[in-house]
């Protein structure tokens, strides 16, 4: 009973205090996030490098770390193992059938590499790498793509200077201009084509999983 009252009182006080802290709120729910909490969870890195911690790592340190943490899936040279993603190579393939989309051939921002390695890799043991290790691994991936030389050291200071090969390879969704105007209106209902032929069959390809009985 008294425990309940105590909780109710504290809750009441908290609401009262937060209500006066800001006029924008409407419900007085939640509590202020502490700086340590924001620092722990807000680790994203922006394309211009905002959010990067201080640190550095060179290609050879990265080679070693990559071999230890990454190579079992991505290959010693970042070329990819089996169905796991290739991180290197694929230059000049984007306009061909089955383009090979790697960090070097496709990724427009280096910040994405740092952010993803730091936040989500190694696969199955995320957020275990030090900032210096992430710089080193990022440097090694750049080296594997011939973007930097083997004596390169990546740091928070020179991060923004690295030019990604496919930085200009993207456009913002243009369907509203290139597709929607042409694909509106009354569709054909009768005699829409002269002949219809089957040109491809999925059963011939035969890659659909079958249930076991």
């Amino acid at each position: 009973m008294s425990k309940y009252l105590e909780i109710a009182l504290i809750a009441g006080l908290t609401v009262g205090m937060t209500a006066s802290a800001s006029m924008a709120e409407e419900h007085g729910l939640g509590r202020e996030a502490l700086p340590e909490e924001i620092a722990a969870w807000d680790v994203k890195v922006m394309p211009d490098g905002r959010g990067l911690p201080e640190g550095s790592g060179d290609v050879w340190t990265g080679d070693e770390a990559f071999g230890m943490y990454c190579a079992s899936c991505h290959g010693d040279f970042a070329e990819g193992v089996g169905n796991w993603p290739s991180l290197a190579g694929g230059m000049g393939t984007l306009d061909r059938d089955d383009p090979v989309k790697t960090v070097g051939s496709y990724w427009p921002y280096l910040s994405t590499v740092w952010d993803y390695v730091n936040r989500s890799m190694p696969y199955g043991y995320a957020q275990s790498l030090s900032a210096d290790e992430v710089y080193a691994i990022t440097a090694y991936i750049l080296y594997s793509n011939n973007v930097v030389d083997d004596d390169f050291t990546l740091s928070h200071e020179n991060f923004a200077e690295v030019e990604m090969p496919n930085a200009d390879g993207f456009i913002v969704d243009d369907r509203p201009e290139t597709e929607y105007p042409d694909w509106r209106g009354d569709p054909c209902m009768e005699e829409c084509k002269d002949a219809v032929e089957i040109t491809m069959r999925a059963a011939v390809l035969d890659v659909t999983p079958q249930d076991e009985e």
Binding site: K44, V45, M46, P47, L94, D95, P99, K101, V103, Y106, W107, P108, Y109, S111, T112, D115, Y116, S120, G169, F170, I171, V172, D173, D174, R175
Partner: peptide, 20 residues
């Protein structure tokens, strides 16, 4: 933010190699 899921994935490569 241009995260992994909005650059390397979930972008659509057109015939000319440029991606949406």
């Amino acid at each position: 933010v241009e995260s992994r899921e909005e650059t390397s994935k979930y972008t659509d490569v057109l015939d000319n190699g440029i991606a949406r």
